[in-house]
Simulated scan of single mutants.
Amino acid sequence: MKVILINRKHGGSRSIELGRWSRALLSLCCLGLPLGMVGVGYMLGQDSEANTMREVALDRLQDELEQQEKDLVALQAQAERKMAAMTRNVSEMQARMTRLDALGQHLTAMADLEEGEFDFSQPPAVGGPLGGEFSVEYNTSDLMAELGLFQARVEDREQQLEILETLLSNRKLDEQSWLSGRPIEKGWISSYYGKRNDPFTGKPSFHHGVDFAGKEGSNVIAVASGVVTWTGSKSGYGETIEISHGDGFVTRYAHNKESLVSPGDVVRKGQAIGLMGSTGRSTGAHVHYEVYKHGRSVDPSSYIRRTRR
């Protein structure tokens, strides 16, 4: 193979005869240079792609870290809200326990229980041997479960106490409506129920009540709770008060100086309803007391001698 070299300046030329090894070396240089450049470019491209992938991975990791940080903040806020809710629940249950203690004291007083048998002003007495070195740590779920059980116990105790209060209230209501005792605070019986001589005519007559003599202006009291059905002047009775007690019972209080109640008033046992006087057909200050059962006059003496149920 010949290679001709031309000199433009002098216009001459020169030929070089290439052997087999020279031709191989020249071919290798002519072909190797482009291939080398292609290889270098490929390697540079691989490095650039790797760098890009590393940057993407780093960005993704940074995003994950930021998201985890946000999740952690959210979990912390949620935990704080749960703790605040648990604190409120504990406060509410403490308030309910305070109410239950007050209710227990009220029921104890209503039931006339012996002193010390029930004492709601003190925490319940507890005890037991030392449990050793064993200790228990509560997590949130355990604490929530304990609070749930505590709340259930409170609700059960509250329900039972309310039932007890209802029963005691009904019993007290029965006692209040139970006709018993005298219709005065001070005084004496001056005339009994039944046949007697009329104080004005001296003739035999039937007396439908019991008379209680006393000081004019002293209190006339209700012998049981009930509703006032009549106040006003009646012929022969003077200023009169009538009270309905339910179950067909009605009591009448006559010859009053003044009535202290009005029709429709609800009165309690022992409440002052009038002032003793001598109005109507009367010889002096006294209370004419009558008891009616289902519209029929009955002897008040058995009710006067009654005691509490």
Rank of each mutant, 00 (worst) to 15 (best):
E239L: 15
D265F: 05
G238I: 14
S218V: 04
Y237M: 10
D211P: 01
S233M: 07
V210T: 15
G187Y: 00
G187D: 01
D265S: 15
G194F: 02
G187F: 00
G232K: 01
S233D: 03
N219P: 08
D211F: 05
S235I: 13
A224P: 04
Y253S: 05
G214S: 06
H245N: 02
V228M: 06
G226K: 06
K203N: 14
D198T: 09
N256T: 13
V210L: 06
K257V: 04
S205M: 11
G214V: 05
L260Q: 01
E216I: 07
S218C: 02
G264D: 04
S190Y: 07
F200D: 14
E258G: 02
V210R: 03
A224F: 10
G246F: 10
N256P: 00
E258I: 12
T240Q: 03
F249K: 11
T201Q: 06
S262G: 06
T201K: 03
G187L: 00
H208S: 14
S225M: 03
G248T: 02
D247R: 15
L260T: 01
K257T: 05
V223I: 13
S235K: 14
T240K: 00
S235E: 09
G226H: 07
E216S: 11
K186E: 14
I189V: 15
E239H: 12
G217S: 05
S259D: 07
Y192I: 04
G246E: 06
S191A: 15
R252F: 00
S244F: 12
H255Q: 12
A254F: 11
T201D: 13
G236D: 03
N256V: 13
T240W: 01
V220P: 03
V220C: 13
S259H: 13
G209W: 04
V250T: 14
N197L: 10
G214I: 04
G238T: 09
W188D: 10
K269S: 13
G236I: 09
R268W: 00
V228F: 08
V220E: 02
S244T: 11
K269I: 00
S218M: 05
N256Y: 13
G217M: 07
I243A: 08
